[in-house]
Amino acid sequence: MRITQHGPLFDGRAQAALKDYIEDVEAEVAQEGEQLVHKYLHEFLQHPTGRYESHVRARARGSLYEVSDGGVVYGPWLAGTGSRNAPRTRFRGYRHWVLAFQELERSSGRIAERVFRPYLRRMQ
């Protein structure tokens, strides 16, 4: 008896497609996270100048992605996590990061499914 194995699963194409898929999902989720932060900032900011918003970006950090404001000094105050927020002042922050994160957690599965379709063909 002789068994011959061939196809994407055995010649490495499936593994390469899976690696590419994971990278694309991470990038797509990070981009969606950036868009959600901007969405919430637009809802909360009363007199936006665009300065803070221009610093909020999705960035690759090694093999991972992060969405941040790049360390803007007043970012924690806007988010409500700074030392100058309540109870020191009445301003409790906008919670734009928390709300964006919660929404991103709910939608990340749908993003992963949408991105997967083209990779499935490469794995068959």
Score class of each variant (00 low, 15 high):
residue 55 H to E: 07
residue 67 V to C: 10
residue 66 E to C: 10
residue 101 F to Y: 11
residue 17 A to I: 07
residue 70 G to D: 08
residue 121 R to W: 13
residue 90 R to P: 01
residue 108 S to Y: 09
residue 89 T to S: 08
residue 99 L to F: 11
residue 67 V to Y: 03
residue 88 R to H: 06
residue 40 Y to N: 04
residue 33 G to Q: 05
residue 28 E to C: 12
residue 56 V to D: 00
residue 62 G to S: 03
residue 33 G to T: 07
residue 99 L to K: 14
residue 12 G to M: 08
residue 13 R to G: 00
residue 29 V to M: 04
residue 72 V to G: 00
residue 79 A to R: 15
residue 57 R to W: 01
residue 51 R to Q: 15
residue 97 W to E: 02
residue 52 Y to Q: 08
residue 50 G to F: 08
residue 121 R to P: 00
residue 107 S to T: 13
residue 80 G to P: 03
residue 83 S to D: 07
residue 92 R to N: 03
residue 46 Q to R: 13
residue 28 E to N: 12
residue 87 P to F: 04
residue 105 E to H: 12
residue 80 G to K: 06
residue 99 L to N: 10
residue 46 Q to H: 11
residue 44 F to P: 00
residue 50 G to K: 13
residue 113 E to P: 12
residue 84 R to G: 12
residue 33 G to W: 01
residue 49 T to H: 10
residue 89 T to G: 01
residue 102 Q to I: 08
residue 15 Q to M: 09
residue 39 K to A: 05
residue 15 Q to H: 08
residue 44 F to E: 10
residue 61 R to V: 13
residue 92 R to C: 00
residue 66 E to F: 05
residue 10 F to E: 04
residue 32 E to Y: 06
residue 17 A to Q: 03
residue 50 G to H: 10
residue 49 T to P: 01
residue 31 Q to T: 12
residue 116 F to E: 14
residue 42 H to T: 08
residue 93 G to A: 07
residue 121 R to G: 00
residue 94 Y to D: 01
residue 123 M to Q: 02
residue 50 G to L: 10
residue 78 L to K: 09
residue 95 R to I: 00
residue 70 G to T: 05
residue 43 E to M: 09
residue 39 K to N: 03
residue 47 H to D: 13
residue 81 T to E: 06
residue 35 Q to S: 12
residue 66 E to N: 10
residue 101 F to S: 13
residue 18 L to A: 13
residue 92 R to G: 07
residue 45 L to H: 09
residue 28 E to I: 11
residue 46 Q to Y: 11
residue 34 E to K: 08
residue 55 H to T: 09
residue 123 M to W: 07
residue 66 E to G: 09
residue 19 K to D: 14
residue 10 F to H: 11
residue 29 V to I: 13
residue 44 F to R: 09
residue 43 E to N: 03
residue 24 D to A: 14
residue 105 E to C: 10
residue 25 V to I: 14
residue 18 L to F: 11
residue 37 V to E: 10
residue 22 I to W: 00
residue 37 V to K: 12
residue 44 F to M: 08
residue 10 F to V: 07
residue 83 S to W: 07
residue 27 A to K: 15
